[in-house]
Simulated scan of single mutants.
Amino acid sequence: MMSHAAYVFASYGIATLTVAGLCLWVIADGRARQRELRELEASGVRRRSAEASTGEAR
């Protein structure tokens, strides 16, 4: 039978691994989105927010 301390340490370990995995996933996904934006901008696609910063009105 698992002792109370072992249960608590196992729970904290699982929670830590889960949070670390989520952090790594968010970082990797953010880098992928930035890479996609660079590729789109290199191909001539521009963001609507870029138009607003130049002062162009619709």
Rank of each mutant, 00 (worst) to 15 (best):
M1V: 04
M1P: 01
M2S: 12
M2Q: 10
M2D: 12
M2T: 09
S3F: 01
A5T: 07
Y7T: 12
Y7E: 11
F9C: 03
F9S: 11
A10I: 05
S11P: 00
S11T: 15
S11V: 06
Y12G: 04
Y12C: 09
I14M: 11
I14A: 15
T16D: 05
T16E: 06
L17I: 08
L17C: 09
L17S: 08
T18E: 05
T18Q: 04
T18N: 03
V19T: 14
A20R: 03
A20M: 10
L22V: 11
L22W: 12
C23K: 10
L24G: 15
L24E: 10
L24C: 12
W25G: 07
W25L: 14
W25R: 09
W25N: 09
V26Q: 13
V26A: 11
V26L: 15
I27Y: 11
I27F: 11
A28G: 06
A28D: 05
D29T: 10
D29M: 13
D29A: 15
D29V: 05
D29L: 13
G30A: 07
G30N: 11
G30S: 11
R31D: 01
A32G: 02
R33P: 00
R33I: 14
R33C: 02
R33K: 13
Q34I: 05
R35F: 05
R35Q: 09
E36A: 15
L37C: 06
L37W: 10
L37H: 08
L37R: 15
R38E: 10
R38K: 14
E39H: 06
L40S: 04
L40W: 04
L40A: 11
E41K: 12
E41I: 07
E41F: 03
A42Q: 12
A42C: 01
S43R: 08
G44W: 00
G44Q: 01
R46F: 00
R46T: 06
R46M: 05
R47N: 03
R48N: 06
S49M: 02
A50I: 01
A50L: 03
E51I: 05
A52D: 08
A52G: 02
A52N: 05
T54P: 00
T54Q: 08
T54M: 07
E56A: 12
E56Q: 09
E56S: 09
A57D: 08
A57N: 07
R58W: 07
R58I: 03
